[in-house]
Design a protein around this nucleic acid. Sequence first.
RNA 1: GGAGAGAUGGCUGAGUGGUCGAAGGCGCUCGACUGGAAAUCGAGUAGGCGGGUAGCCCCUGUCUCGAGGGUUCAAAUCCCUCUCUCUCCGCCA
Length: 424
Amino acid sequence: MLDSKLIKSNPELVAEKLKQRGLSTAFDEFLNMDTVRRRLLVEVEERKSFRNRTSQEIGKMKKAGQEPIELMTKVKEVGHEIKEMDEQLISLEQKMGDMLLTLPNLPHDSVPVGESEADNVEMRRWGTIPEFNFEPLPHWDIGTGLDILDFDRAAKLSGARFTVYKGAGARLERALVNFMLDLHVDKHGYQEIFPPFMVNSECMLGTGQLPKFGGDMFKIEGRDMYMVPTAEVPLTNLFREEILSAANLPFYFTAYTACFRAEAGSHGRDTRGIIRQHQFNKVEMVKITCQEESLNELEKLTNDAEEVLQLLGLPYRVVSLCTGDLGFSAAKTYDLEVWLPFFSEYREISSCSNCSDFQARRANIRYRPENQGKLQYCHTLNGSGVAIGRTVAAILENYQQADGSVLIPSVLVPYMGGMTQIEK
RNA sequence: GGAGAGAUGGCUGAGUGGUCGAAGGCGCUCGACUGGAAAUCGAGUAGGCGGGUAGCCCCUGUCUCGAGGGUUCAAAUCCCUCUCUCUCCGCCA
């Protein structure tokens, strides 16, 4: 959520920043509502002040044995006025609040200005793109050939965009989860969390999925519950409605969860394979920081995600998303894109974002600064560390052999029970 | 699912109609004491939204005691609904 005071004091700046995201917003209506709201607030507070003072007088008079009927009637009348005005105020504030909740975060000044994916800026590349002396297969053909991925039976169980992992495939999925968690916990200093996979709508509002993107999620029928679309939601909401001590910042959390996305496939992209699924696994990293540190922390978080790919020997590049391609809650985002030989292109495997105070404001996560000053909103960051399914796809395609087998990256061998190669 | 108890400030915990944004304690901040520290003593210490103002330096109004409604001149306190927590019973991986 944007700071309404910033909108009031500098609507042009906010509109300009939103325009960079491709959003034309006029704040005239908002500012008008606020003017009306403030006028109404002053009037109703005058009446409340009168009611408070007079009620106390009535109390004293009653104790003195009097029965001030006229005063009581007067206060009662004012009470009715207050109620009417309060209702108007609430409806105004509701409208203003609804508008604020639908506005995305402002891009940070360091974010490249652009309209679409095409304007994203490549920051760096890592690794050597593998060369094959045969025609590389797509991961779905490799997976079905090795009988470690079963799309047909998954369709029987659940429908399109689900996958059954079998044998070494299932093991590989589990190995990756453990490898990534161990790396982030043991080397990068994150605390491991195992959160619920279902959360309430307050959480979804806090991280920005609601109110705009409810259709992207699986909702539990008849309950105020959603399947988590990413562990970012439960992790970031851990401290919702809390006041943290600056001395305890920053918090580093990492968690494995399954992720559930209803929107996957709605645009007909990636209809084959395991790139875009209704359910996939992910290890996520979340940081809660003070305001001054979030930019640095984003660089470190991105490096932590990169190290996963480096250790797995998967070529990738880092892209700074341009203003037009930023997600709803993000002020700045680096995407990690892994090389997929069959596609012959880099595809997103991690997205690392600094959400500045945007989510903290929605979720009311604050901290008291060291100098005991005024409470501040925390900054929240999140990044995939990394998406498991896409990592499996990348391993299958990058490590495929001419005979249809797939080599296991050495760092995963212990997690695979010593297996070095997946063969038919 | 059935029965009961509860939800108050950063934490703990009093408060059953007005003098309560709220005792006491802990924690924290500042000061005294000390060579320094501990202990002790003293003072301060919620947040939101407005108004005054150049200004969150101050002054001031209002709201907030799980959430929402109601009763009343007046609600943390009484009534209703909901949410959550705990205990017992049932069921269960």
